[in-house]
Amino acid sequence: MNPARGSLLGIEHLEASEILRILKFARRMNPDRPRPLLKGRRVLLLFYEASTRTRSSFEIAAKSMGAHTVLIQAIGSSIEKGESLLDTGYTVRAVGADIIVIRHPNAGAPYIMAQHIDVPVINAGDGLHEHPSQALLDAYTILRNKKAFKGLQIAIVGDIFHSRVARSACHLLSKFGVKIVLCGPPELVPDIASTLAPGVRVTRHIEDALRGTDVVMLLRVQKERLSGLNIDLPEYIARYQMTPARLKMAKKDAIVMHPGPIIRGLELTSEIADGAQARILEEVRLGVPTRMAILARAMGRMR
């Protein structure tokens, strides 16, 4: 079965024009001025993984459009008792879900769901694969600060391998001709990452990544993922941590983004996190109207 119309499973196969349509609609959305586009609809938030910002962002977005939301978390539900992904899907469909928003630790789980359930499925992050709503809100943030994608360069620094945010961002920005430089040690940024999309390049040197860049996107580096690799935490910090001195290498008006949660003292210093160039909280803020647009689109109300 083909995914239901309005599903958002990833950025990779989304047309550039469709991305612009979503962003344009997001600009018209404001959670403080509710619009009942989803009045009486049921949005099922199926979270197989803990999440604070994405979950609450979708929840607020849905509610501000008049939808009911039901949160199902793996822990303490039938999922924990061994119910399969599809059985959970059939169950929430039978309960009357109009939209399923799913966060899952396994890549592709939303695809499996969408192939079997006849309601729109929205991927809220699947394993290492994609995080489309994050890429869209990041694109919105960039556009708010940079006016247009044309001619931009972005440096994405950190654990690319384990990052669905990075994969979705690369797919999205590549569609608009943004030059993308991925930076980090080979264990976290394998050379193969450059095959992800046109215009993506890999470098090991932070100076190389930052020089002349318009956007710096930092990714969290989990300590436990460094263990067993050839690089230890102090070395990572010495080579890749974003500091005011390093940020000077980027363009003067460069912005700093981070999908969160940030770890001060690891991938960035407090001066950067709280600095004038940081857009980290703006990203969180723009997450809500972006997800309003995504939900409206799912119900065919993005007009």
Binding site: E12, A107, G108, D126, G127, L128, H129, E130, F161, R164, R167, P190, I192, A193, T195, L196
Partner: peptide
Amino acid sequence: AGARSFRLGLR
């Protein structure tokens, strides 16, 4: 392990 597994987010 290759370009495709990286793209799909599969180890």
